[in-house]
Design a protein around this nucleic acid. Structure first.
Lengths: 258, 258
DNA sequence: AGCAAAAATCTCATTAGATGAGATTTCTGT
DNA sequence: ACAGAAATCTCATCTAATGAGATTTTTGCT
């Protein structure tokens, strides 16, 4: 009668439908995409609407709802990465015209948590909440290089064609070696995500020494010479190291309160 | 064996725990607050974590997770109220030193969707996502005054003591009459939410003529005379009317895309 | 490193609640 | 006003959710 996945997960499946390519859905489209029956889908949508997770747009369209807005407000208050990283990010942005990004890794996504723009002509836009591709760029590299071997191989397998296309190697093992060789120093990539832009990135680690986020500057190549690049790379690394230290300090025993 | 509420709603109950007063929860606290058994609670938390709705903070704390950040990004792209109202809000803020707010109504909350600050000394802070009280202030009044009778009485009943304390009347019917008498013109309130601040608000309606949001300026009373106040009130009303018109225009048939 | 306690997970019998086919009602757009 | 689309309801079937209690893993302290 059903797919073997329970109601708790199924209702969340509706929230997972929403992406940058699909900001709005009709009930019919959801039914087709998820394979739920009409009564079931409408039951779930009703619950989500009542709690503010979904909102109607026009007669038949559904978008995410106001509870999402409220929850992001709560996140901005509670997210240790953001609270501790925001000032460091601002300092980085002040060093040189650039876009400075604080990006966290979750699942298979790199998600911009905060950004600071200090260049008159930003070449790309990564506002808070926007995901970016895992295979490309200094940010991605900063995460992948520091993964434990098993996890790294997993990600290589998932993104093999793209990584090979970037010249990282011809086999899984070669790519892993290439990435592991990048562990020292900041990660620098040129034009992999946006033409004409250099990315300088350094990882931030959590208490278990796993990479969880990246501090990054994206800089127009024409504003750079080698010496400046080296100095900025050092600054990014220093900031990331400082953020790591802050995040891994022993917490006070009290949960985050307002 | 259980409370008679299904799994789909129960898992969402966890997300509802989070508020400005409670940004982080331990599993034990959730168990106590929700009355779920330990295995059940942990099962739900596992699902929510895997999808990014929750994230661990330290060893035992749980906060909202990165999927929330991503979803708010999507909302900022899809929310017609925000997309159409942002520019109007900016124009209002430019008229006079103030904090200008775009606030939507959902359930029992008034939620700030966008704000623009044009005063050097903002007296209160309502960043995007922060809820505010329903009973007090011009914003609340702008919504309540325009509700159909049944709905208005409902809200009066829920907030009776507070409304009576504000001098709106001594009975439900008196309060309802007072509110209905406020339908003409902009709503003006002095110091109900923040001392020394005047709120000027006008409702925004949806396609069914129901009030769904409010445009508001909050102004330091000392920067105001009667003539300026009257002019600003007119501007707020004009902007709200314009936003209403935009929102109630016939939509193109295509769902919102990126 | 060892240990006790707390936290997290597992097992499995019971049954609550989820499901969807199909009927019915409500809403929308012309 | 009307036809068709959208949304909701009914109810028999049976899937999956539940939680008591056992077990494993993790944490924090010494």
């Amino acid at each position: 009668m059903t797919t073997g996945t329970g109601s708790a997960e199924r209702i969340l499946g509706i929230l997972e439908l929403f992406s940058e390519d699909r900001l709005e859905w009709t009930a019919e489209e959801m039914i087709a995409a998820l394979g739920y029956s009409r009564p079931t889908l409408y039951r779930y949508v009703k619950s989500l609407k009542e709690l503010g997770f979904l909102a109607q747009n026009g007669s038949h369209g559904w978008t995410l709802g106001p509870r999402v807005v409220e929850m992001d407000f709560l996140m901005r208050k509670s997210d240790a990465l953001l609270c501790q990283g925001q000032g460091l990010l601002r300092d980085l942005a002040a060093l040189h015209p650039c876009t400075a990004l604080l990006v966290r890794w979750y699942g298979n996504k790199l998600l911009c948590v905060a950004s600071e723009v200090s260049t008159p002509n930003p070449r790309s836009s990564y506002p808070r909440g926007r995901p970016m591709p895992l295979a490309r760029g200094a940010i991605s590299r900063a995460i992948l290089a520091h993964l434990p071997k098993k996890q790294m191989l997993e990600k290589i397998v998932e993104n093999f064609d793209e990584m090979r296309g970037l010249g990282l190697g011809e086999t899984y093992e070669q790519i892993a070696d290439t990435l592991r060789g990048m562990r020292k120093g900041a990660l620098i990539a040129r034009g992999e995500v946006t033409d004409g832009v250099v990315g300088v990135a350094a990882p931030v680690f959590d208490a278990s020494r796993a990479p969880v986020a990246v501090l990054c500057m994206t800089i127009n190549r024409e504003t750079l010479d080698d010496l400046t690049l080296a100095r900025l790379a050092q600054s990014v690394q220093d900031a990331a190291r400082r953020l790591t230290e802050t995040l891994t300090e022993k917490r006070t025993d009290e949960p985050v309160a307002s």
